[in-house]
């Protein structure tokens, strides 16, 4: 088992080096300084900006700096006097305040739906649930966000006569701020992810339930409940956990649209603002951190997998 873990760890090193390389190259193909300054800038301005960004150094040195702590102490281009690190530490919490609860909610609802469908496999309930999932998946999630805000915030507030969910914004000084600012985004986020996850979980559960050992267990006369709990669900859980772990970093990125639309100052909306404003230090720093997060969860998933999956454990 340890051999497996070490092998996985080693494999992640070149991947990590590669990500930073890709990020660096992608951000430098089109000279970020010119992109920022426009074509009317003087050579002097150009050189100055280049030096401010550390872009005058050799590629390798820049790479080294990025590897060694993401170059987070560089000043953002637009938010005068704030470093990438400050921006990052400020943006993490709003993102998590939504991503965390949304993940839990999505997983619970999706699992329940999947179980229900799998249990009634081939019956009308299953077909309706899965048809619903396909229909839901076929609508752009931007539409969910727009209509979710309209009906969940504007309309609801109008009907009730007072503000339940804020239409936009994020202010932790309010009492019940989480309900006011985050609950609606969480609900929307969950609503649009449930379809995908439910389909996936159902497929996993159905696959597990048709395996040979399950049939054997049934043949041995085990009760249906024990078969499901011990043989189907336990094995399906491995895939579920892996899936959850892998989606973790994507979740923070996946809610970019929600953050932008609800005016939540999280990592996604900060990154988009930076991209639109060609704020090079932020774009580079944030992308690198996103990638590193992924690697960390990747390793965690592998370790977890090794612990849980008997096939790996017994190796």
């Amino acid at each position: 088992m340890w051999q497996y873990v070490v092998r996985k760890l080693l494999w992640n090193i070149p991947v990590y080096l590669g990500i930073l390389l890709v990020v660096m190259v992608a951000l430098r193909v089109n000279d970020p300084v010119w992109a920022r300054l426009g074509k009317n800038a003087t050579q002097e301005q150009y050189e100055q900006t280049k030096e401010d960004l550390g872009l005058h150094e050799s590629f390798l040195r820049q790479y080294g700096r990025l590897l060694n702590g993401f170059d987070l102490d560089r000043y953002s281009w637009d938010k005068h006097g704030r470093t990438v690190r400050q921006e990052l530490s400020q943006a993490v919490w709003p993102s998590l305040a939504i991503a965390g609860p949304a993940l839990v909610l999505t997983t619970l609802v999706a699992l329940l739906t999947a179980l229900l469908a799998a249990f009634r496999r081939g019956r009308p309930l299953d077909r309706w649930l899965m048809a619903g999932a396909v229909v839901g998946m076929s609508i752009s999630y931007v539409v969910y966000v727009i209509l979710g805000q309209y009906f969940g915030a504007y309309k609801l507030n109008e009907w009730v006569g007072r503000e339940i969910f804020a239409i936009q914004g994020y202010d932790r000084s309010q009492p019940l701020w989480w309900v006011q600012y985050c609950l609606l985004p969480v609900l929307i986020n969950a609503a649009l992810a449930v379809g995908y996850d439910a389909r996936f979980y159902r497929a996993v559960i159905v696959e597990e339930s048709t395996r040979d050992h399950v049939r054997t267990a049934r043949a041995k006369g085990l009760s249906e409940r024990r078969v499901w709990l011990k043989h189907v669900l336990r094995n399906a859980m491995i895939s579920v956990i892996t899936h959850v772990m892998i989606t973790l970093p994507f979740l923070v990125a996946g809610q970019i649209v929600i953050e932008v639309y609800f005016g939540i100052p999280g990592m996604g909306s900060t990154l988009i603002t930076a991209i639109l404003g060609k704020d090079f230090p932020i774009v580079q720093g944030f992308t690198a951190v996103f990638a590193a997060l992924f690697i960390v969860t990747n390793i965690a998933t592998d370790v977890l997998y090794a612990v849980v999956d008997p096939r790996v454990r017994l190796q």
Partner: peptide, 16 residues
């Protein structure tokens, strides 16, 4: 060219 308002003023100020 769509940019943030602050960047727009900056672009104008820098005659870009």
């Amino acid at each position: 060219r769509f940019v943030d308002f602050s960047q727009l003023t900056e672009a104008v100020h820098e005659k870009r």
